[in-house]
Simulated scan of single mutants.
Amino acid sequence: MTQIFTPAADTWLRLFMVGGLALSSGGLVGLIGFAHSAYETSTDVRPHQPVPFSHKHHAGELGIDCRYCHTGAETSPQAGLPPTATCMTCHSQIWTNATMLAPIRKSLADDKPIIWTRVAKLPDYVFFRHDIHIAKGVGCETCHGRIDAMPLTYRAKAFTMEFCLDCHRDPVPHLRPKDHIADMTWQAGTDASASGEKITAHEGIRFGQLTHCYVCHR
């Protein structure tokens, strides 16, 4: 009787199975790693801007409140970007001839807004309201990181579905008193849970409903 398979066939079959499993596992790990990489999530990327605006200088060193420039943060779905007139409230008096501020002066003279490159941007299929998060006690630093320490603005947090759901599942640790909303150095302290629970009760935050699909996708 003729033998179809060689004695080594079983060994080769085992090697192919092990190799295929290793390749599949490695591919899956690589895919997950890529999905969480800075390249895919756009974290730590400093896009070119018409003016090299420094949050470190303005918010950190000068102590300018976030809401002075982002006037819609508490009242509208988008925080908004400051009009040129806001910049010129200071720069009509200081650094009036600075070369780097030439686009600001031209914007005012031509009555045309500066086209900034957005850093904190969500996909169009995500429904998000900035004002609601601020009203419920989510601080600027929670989503934007220590922006007061950024010479050039970048995305500090990966705005992934996982990032949002982690907070929506358990918002208590992420909430703070409203007088500390824009305070980048605020720490919850030892009574973080008690403080957060008090805020959720006061604001009527409905546990369990924040993870429903329609909350973010409408």
Rank of each mutant, 00 (worst) to 15 (best):
P52Q: 08
H174L: 04
E162L: 08
V138S: 04
R176L: 15
E74M: 14
P151S: 00
H168K: 02
T190K: 13
L21C: 14
R218K: 11
D166I: 12
Q187T: 05
L13R: 15
W12D: 05
L21F: 12
Q93F: 13
R155L: 15
A9K: 05
F34A: 07
A102Q: 10
R118L: 10
T41D: 02
F159C: 05
F128I: 03
R155W: 09
C167E: 01
L23N: 05
V51K: 01
R46I: 03
T200C: 14
M1N: 08
W12R: 10
H144M: 02
Y214Q: 06
T200E: 09
Q187G: 09
M150N: 01
Y154H: 13
C87K: 04
A149I: 06
S42H: 11
N97I: 13
A59M: 06
F16T: 12
L28R: 06
E40V: 15
H217W: 05
C87F: 11
I4E: 02
T86M: 10
L31A: 15
P151Y: 00
W116A: 00
I181L: 15
H174K: 02
G30R: 00
R46Q: 02
Q93V: 14
E40W: 13
T211S: 02
H57E: 09
P83V: 03
T43R: 01
L28M: 11
I199A: 02
T43A: 00
W116N: 00
I114C: 03
I32R: 04
R118C: 06
H91A: 01
G26A: 10
P171R: 00
D124T: 13
D124F: 12
L210N: 13
R169S: 09
K112T: 15
C140F: 13
V119S: 07
I134A: 14
F159S: 04
P77V: 07
A158E: 00
E197K: 11
P123H: 01
S193H: 11
H217S: 04
G20L: 03
K157Y: 05
F159D: 00
A156Q: 08
T200M: 15
H133D: 01
A102S: 11
P77H: 03
S25A: 15
A98H: 13
H144A: 02
E74Q: 10
G72Q: 09
V119A: 06
C140P: 03
P82R: 01
